[in-house]
Computed example of a mutant assay.
Amino acid sequence: MDSGKLLIIGGKEEKCKTGDILNAFVELSKEREGAIGILPTASSIPDEVSAAYVDVFKKLGVGEVEVISVDSREKADDPVILNTVSGLAALFITGGDQKRLSDCIRNTKLHAQLTDMWKSGLLIGGTSAGASIMGEDMIIYSEMKNNDEERLLIEMGKGFGFEKNLLIDQHFSQRARFGRLIGAIAENNELVGIGIDENTAILVKGDQFEVIGEHQVFVIDGKNGSLVDFIRSENGGEELTITDFKLHALTKGYCFNLTSRKIMKRKEA
């Protein structure tokens, strides 16, 4: 059986009946029997976040919604939780802190179960932190130091690894994250950088994805590029010189092949 689809969302998706992204998630979930699960582990207010998604999914016609409450590694190994997850048609991972999400679930029984279920066809969606977690590697924090030095500090971490070769960043244009993603790819050029704007998503199936939603998706391909120079000034600032990186920008309906690393023809509605 083919692996399931991944709906990877840049954050702040419309939570209403007319929102393209959550409507697409609900329609795709119908390909498999069972409830839609909501995993709010990344959030500092999981009950509030879960309630909002339960409400919107119910308004979109979903009959059964299960909240998967996991706030520790012990719960991620709980047989009751695992049994609930085993009956899902789809799982939606909310936003929040991707490091918290990884710390609670990565390399637990729940992580292994989700990986196996996705490989057997489970639909998994994620927004904001729930988007970043989809890759094997992820950016968990960045900070620009602006006092005596100008230095972008990027902290990397490990995600769930559904897509091994993608490094996903979210809220991309809205939070001006181009610099941090290209910096991360410069030091990890075997990865494909995917920057997803708010209320925008990619639907990944196999080796390609389609863009859904309002704004843009950016692809940074450093496969044939190189980090030429790395300068650290006397005051601690850092600047990169890079060459031969490719940048692609896609809007709604366009597809991208992750093997050939080329834009594909716009998908007609």
Rank of each mutant, 00 (worst) to 15 (best):
V26G: 08
C16L: 06
I93S: 05
A184E: 04
N189W: 03
E155L: 13
E13R: 01
K164P: 02
D20K: 08
F25T: 03
E155C: 12
N224S: 08
D207N: 15
S226D: 07
P79F: 08
I133Y: 01
E13D: 09
G125I: 09
E64A: 12
L28T: 00
T108G: 09
E74Q: 10
V65F: 01
F160W: 02
N257D: 14
I93A: 10
P46F: 05
I220V: 09
H215F: 12
F92S: 06
I93P: 03
L153S: 09
R232F: 08
W118G: 02
S132I: 01
D2K: 10
S132K: 14
T18I: 14
L123G: 04
R100P: 06
E149H: 06
V65D: 03
G193F: 02
T200D: 05
M117F: 12
A35H: 07
P79Y: 07
I154S: 02
K119R: 15
E268C: 01
G96Y: 02
I133L: 06
N257V: 03
A201C: 13
A52C: 11
R232M: 15
S128M: 11
A24L: 14
L7E: 04
T251S: 15
E33H: 15
V54K: 07
D20H: 10
F230V: 13
A112C: 05
V49P: 07
F245M: 08
G61S: 02
S72M: 00
L240W: 04
L101K: 10
V219P: 00
K265G: 07
E268V: 12
V70C: 07
E149Y: 00
V65E: 00
L28I: 03
V70W: 06
P40W: 01
G34M: 03
T94V: 08
F172S: 15
A176M: 11
L82Y: 12
T127C: 04
K252S: 15
M1W: 02
I133N: 04
K30I: 10
K17Y: 05
K12R: 15
L181Y: 11
V49T: 12
Q113R: 11
G125A: 15
I242Q: 01
M156L: 13
A35D: 04
V67L: 07
Q216G: 03
G179L: 05
I212P: 00
K17S: 12
S120T: 08
G126W: 00
S173N: 14
K30Q: 15
R180A: 15
M156S: 14
L114G: 00
K99D: 04
I8Q: 12
L82T: 10
G213W: 08
E210Q: 14
I202K: 02
V62I: 09
V67P: 02
V204I: 07
G10I: 01
L152P: 13
L114S: 00
F256E: 08
D47S: 12
L88N: 09
C104T: 15
N188C: 08
I38S: 03
L123T: 09
G195N: 15
E155S: 13
I139T: 06
A129L: 11
D77N: 13
H111W: 11
I105W: 00
A186L: 10
N188M: 07
L247R: 03
Q174K: 12
T115K: 13
Q113V: 07
G121N: 02
K119V: 09
L191G: 10
K5Q: 08
T18K: 11
H248C: 06
N83A: 11
